[in-house]
Structures are given as C-alpha cells and as structure tokens.
Simulated assay, not measured.
Amino acid sequence: MKVKALPLVIVRLQIVVLLMFGLMLSGCDDKPEEEKGFAGLADDASNYAQVTPDKRFVFPDDHAPHDDFRIEWWYVTANLKDADGQSLGVQWTLFRNALPRAKGLQGDGSGWSNRNLWMGHAAVTSRDDHFAAERYARGGVQQAGVTLAPFAAWIDEWSFSSQSANDDPLADMQLQASGPQFNYRLHLKATKPLVLQGKQGFSQKSEQGQASYYYSQPFFQAEGSIEIEGKTYQVSGPAWLDREWSSQPLTDNQTGWDWFSLHLGDGAEVMLYRMRQKDGEPYLTGTWINADGSTEQLAAKDIELAPEDTTDVEGRDMPTRWSVKIPSKAVDIAVEALNPQAWMNLQIPYWEGPVTLSGSHEGVGYLEMTGY
C-alpha cells in the first residue's frame, strides 16, 4: 500500500545520508574511486548476484524486483500521434539501485536496513519541445517500489500499474507521470506475449561476458492523453516495455551505449544495442522480432549500424541520424530523431527520444544514447 509522499528535499537528504551511511559501514575511509563506464556500471560488482546463461525465467515472478542484483529498471517508451497527426513521444522509467550489503546489517527490510535506492524518469517529446522530470526515493518506506499482486511499479504519484485480473499482469496497464510542463495518462494493452532478448533472456554486452537479464513487451498499443504546457492532446500509438537487471553490464573499456527499439511498418520489431568502447570497435547485438512474436538473435555480423549526422546538444556532439542495415531481412533504413534536442538534463544526463524510420521500411521507434 502506498503512503503519502515525503517532501522531495527530505527524500534527497535521506538518499545522501543513506549513501554516506553505506560507505561508512563498508569501511570505506578513502576517497571513492571514479565511476567506470556510464553511471558507474563498470564498477566492481563482486558483492552482488551475477548474471549467468542458465536462468529460467518465471512469470509473473520476474516482473518483481531482484534485490540481490545491483541495478534494474522498468522502462516504457511510446510513439504516439494526436488527432491531427502530430508525433509525440513518452518515456517512463523506474530504476532500482542496491547499495552493497553493509557489515552488521541483515536482509532488505524496512527502514535503514533496506539497501534499495529508487529513481524515476519521465519525459514527453514533440518536434519542438522536450521536457523531462525525475523523482528520488529510498527503499523501505513505501515511497517507491514494485509489487506483484496486483502488479504496480511506482515512485510518488508516478505509476505503471496493472488493470488485468488474468494470468498476465502486464496485459492491460495504466501509465501516468507528470512534471512542471507536462502530464500524461495512458492505457496500454498488449497484443502478443513477452519477448526474451538475447539467448533466452541472457543478453550479453561484451566479449568479456558482461550481461543482463532482459525481456521486453514490444507489442503494446497505447491510447490516452498528454498535456504539454496547458494544452491537452488525445493520442494513440505503439509502446514498448523493457525489463533489465544486472550487476555489471559494462566493462572498464565501455563508456556507454546506443539503444534502439524500432517498430517497423510491416509489424516486425527490432531491438539493437551498441556498446561503445574506449578502444576497439563497439560491441553490437540485437533481436529481430517477427510480427507473430517469434524472435531471431542478431549478431554483430548481421547488423550494419553507423551514425550519419550529428547535432550539437548541450555542448555534446550527438549522433541524431543513423544508418541501420540488416541485409538478411532486406532492411536498409535511416533512423532520425524527431527532436534532436531530446536531452535528459537530469542528475544522470543522457539523450532519449522518439525516432522516425525511412528507406526500405517506414516506422517509428525510440533511441537512447548514454555516456556522451
């Protein structure tokens, strides 16, 4: 059951204190080392559970948090159009991050014994505007979390919650979030089953073996309303849920990633991950999702992915137009940002926004670029 949200300034203070408390209990007297990779995701993860290729996914259980792993997220993007055909994008994300288990503390219960920190990101994007907001919470006080019966993921008043009473709690969902300049409320209905990414959900991110557990629901259809700076739009279009958890998805040599979720006009879906490296070629992987929901893993040799044009975004040279080729599927497309200035100017900044497809296939999708 949710409780009244704490004032944001108190929440942020709690997080800072909790971080300091965790460091002290871990016996860390020296200055912390500089984070490795994007958001420290290449830091040592030996104190956490490890991703291995032999996991058997169990649903609905795996919709819930996996507290022994360091990082996980519930991630929704939607490519929408209003009644006049205007393109709009929506993002909703809940991140869970676990502190190392400190000496003397047992379990992951309520109050200060809970190791989880929570962060929410939400955004709306049009051709001319991009607005983003964030929320923070600590675990153990019911300000944020994920429950299974019924399924609900929330942080403060933002929520992604089930409207379904059948065996698939993600079949019928309500999504809502707000920021100073925007507000949205969407109804999402799944038309096909979930998809396991990689090798039966084991998604490798490097030649050294870094990986995540990863599944998606790329077959949502969304409808509802978006309010931007006081104007309301009735919208509909495809949406995509990503679920990942890991403890070390990057290597010391990897600085960030470029992630694509693409809805092709013929009903197929494509997921692509490009992990950039300080030295050497990027690590490239993906999944081809047929219109009937069956999948085929894509290796680097199956994909040709390259930036074609860049945009100055907040002083960064960001690739906002890409060439994507999958010869075995006769795919030769340009992927272009709807709004090149879709910068998530938050505590952990990155680029995230809707894209349009042209060439051999029409369509829409989302692009996320981190570590720039």
Rank of each mutant, 00 (worst) to 15 (best):
G315E: 06
D108I: 06
G280A: 02
A98L: 05
A291D: 13
W154G: 04
G286D: 09
V141T: 09
T147Q: 14
Y372A: 05
G365M: 03
V17D: 01
T295A: 00
D317R: 11
A42I: 12
K2M: 13
F260E: 03
D309A: 15
Y233V: 13
G27H: 01
R135G: 15
G230H: 06
E296I: 11
T370I: 13
D302W: 14
A171H: 06
Y283Q: 08
Y273P: 09
S247A: 12
E281M: 03
E244Y: 02
A102P: 13
Q91H: 11
W154D: 07
A98E: 05
P319V: 14
Q347P: 00
A222G: 12
G104P: 11
F57S: 09
L6E: 00
A306P: 00
G37Y: 04
F69P: 08
A268L: 11
Q174S: 11
L250S: 04
L175W: 11
V313D: 06
G265E: 15
Y213R: 06
T191N: 01
L99R: 15
G198R: 05
A137I: 10
V335M: 13
T370S: 09
G363K: 07
A122H: 02
Y184Q: 03
W158G: 10
R127I: 12
N79P: 09
G27M: 06
L186K: 12
I226G: 00
L241M: 11
L346M: 12
A137H: 09
A149K: 13
F57W: 13
A152V: 14
T356R: 02
R243Y: 05
Y350S: 07
S162M: 08
L80D: 09
D167N: 15
H130M: 09
L305I: 15
L94K: 13
P238Y: 01
A334V: 14
G40T: 13
A334D: 06
G201S: 05
L196E: 12
D30P: 00
N339S: 04
A64G: 08
L346Y: 05
L188F: 15
L19I: 12
S164M: 03
L194V: 14
R70M: 06
L148F: 04
P7Q: 02
